[in-house]
């Protein structure tokens, strides 16, 4: 179902682009045309863009769609001491300034969106990583991170020589525990004897774990010194430290969100076994496509293995030998033969 929508997107975008090119100068689009998107905005949570991962990827998707529509894309970022009111006010300001497709990244926006969406019924909203907002003009975008994590967990389980693998999470919050749960299940499925060491770098509301490479590195060195030979780093910016530790001690690490093999320096990337891909660009791009199209289907939109929302990376070719097995697991998950847990 989602794949179908994905395929439809370029068509819709092209259509809208043509329309907007023709209609330039006229203030009222023809009533028969789709509800146009004039300005797009992304509101990030505290970490914001430049994380080399999730936020950047979400931005890329929105940017692609915005460029196709030839409209402006604006970014704003939250602060640590923001209340729901602050977030609502931020969205309100955007909505009242002519932004008619607004993407809020992060579950902290849930309460604010619920409120503001009702005040601006003509504006289309999307919230990423939350499925609790119900309104006729809101998309709830969820990613099945546990499914992707299962696959890289299986890869780790198949590749480990010490039957001990590690998981390093940035901050102990449910969102990241989904990664942990999927990873652990994947490891167990592929290698029932394997043990998983788990650690988180910080506890909420201390979000320093997302941007503290020194702690990431030392946590990884600690695991490598104690029998772990593959570490899944679901640690945002701290992941750079984990990969560095892998390169320094000649072990494997696993990237997250983006295909980190392509981001890291040459000497480091050859130690990145694979990466758990969270294609947030697909979510943002599809949302904008619908907001600018004829049909807007509010509600929960889940992006998982089935529709390319998550996956694993093959760059470097280090998992080529087990690719068939991993794809087998993926097929089982899509078909429902394997149900991946979401909590550890």
């Amino acid at each position: 179902m989602h794949r179908r929508r994905l395929a439809r997107l370029p068509l819709a975008l092209a259509f809208v682009a043509v329309l907007s090119a023709c209609g330039r100068g006229t203030s009222n689009p023809s009533p028969a045309g789709p509800p146009q998107v004039h300005r797009i905005a992304i509101a990030y949570d505290i970490s914001g863009r430049g994380d080399g991962g999730f936020n950047d990827i979400a931005y890329n998707g929105a940017k692609e769609a915005a460029d196709a529509l030839r409209v402006e894309l604006k970014e704003v970022t939250a602060k640590l001491d923001d209340t729901d009111d602050d977030r609502a006010e931020r969205l309100r300001l955007l909505a009242s300034s002519g932004y008619d497709a607004i993407i809020a990244v992060g579950f902290t926006y849930a309460t604010a969106i619920q409120k503001v969406a009702a005040e601006f019924p003509k504006v289309k909203f999307a919230i990423v990583d939350d499925a609790t907002v119900t309104a006729p003009n809101v998309w709830d975008i969820l990613f099945a991170e546990h499914e992707g994590s299962f696959l890289v967990g299986a890869a780790a389980g198949l590749k480990t020589k010490t039957t001990t693998v590690g998981f390093i999470g940035a901050v102990q919050i449910p969102l990241l525990q989904k990664f942990e749960a999927g990873f652990t299940a994947g490891v167990r499925a592929a290698n029932p004897a394997a043990r998983v060491q788990v650690t988180y770098l910080s506890q909420p509301p201390d979000y320093s774990g997302f941007g503290d490479p020194p702690h990431g590195k030392e946590a990884a060195l600690g695991m490598y010194d104690n029998g772990v030979d593959i570490i899944f780093a679901a640690a945002g910016g701290s992941g750079a430290g984990v990969h560095e530790a892998a390169a320094q001690t000649d072990h494997w690490s696993i990237g997250v969100d983006a295909d980190e093999y392509k981001l890291e320096p040459v000497n480091v990337r050859d130690h990145i076994l694979t990466s758990m891909l969270k294609n947030s660009n697909v979510g943002t791009r599809e949302f904008i496509g619908e907001a600018a199209g004829f049909q807007f289907t509010p509600g929960v939109h889940t992006f998982g293995l089935a529709n390319g929302g998550v996956g694993y990376a093959t760059s470097g070719g280090f998992v080529d030998d087990i690719k068939a097995k991993l794809d087998g697991y993926a097929a089982d998950i899509v078909a429902g033969r394997i149900v991946v847990p979401q909590t550890p």
Binding site: G211, D212, P213, P214, G241
Partner: peptide
């Protein structure tokens, strides 16, 4: 922090 403890600058690294 940017050389020995890790090998890059990352915002918020001083933690």
């Amino acid at each position: 922090l940017v050389t020995v403890a890790s090998s890059l600058y990352r915002e918020g690294q001083t933690a």
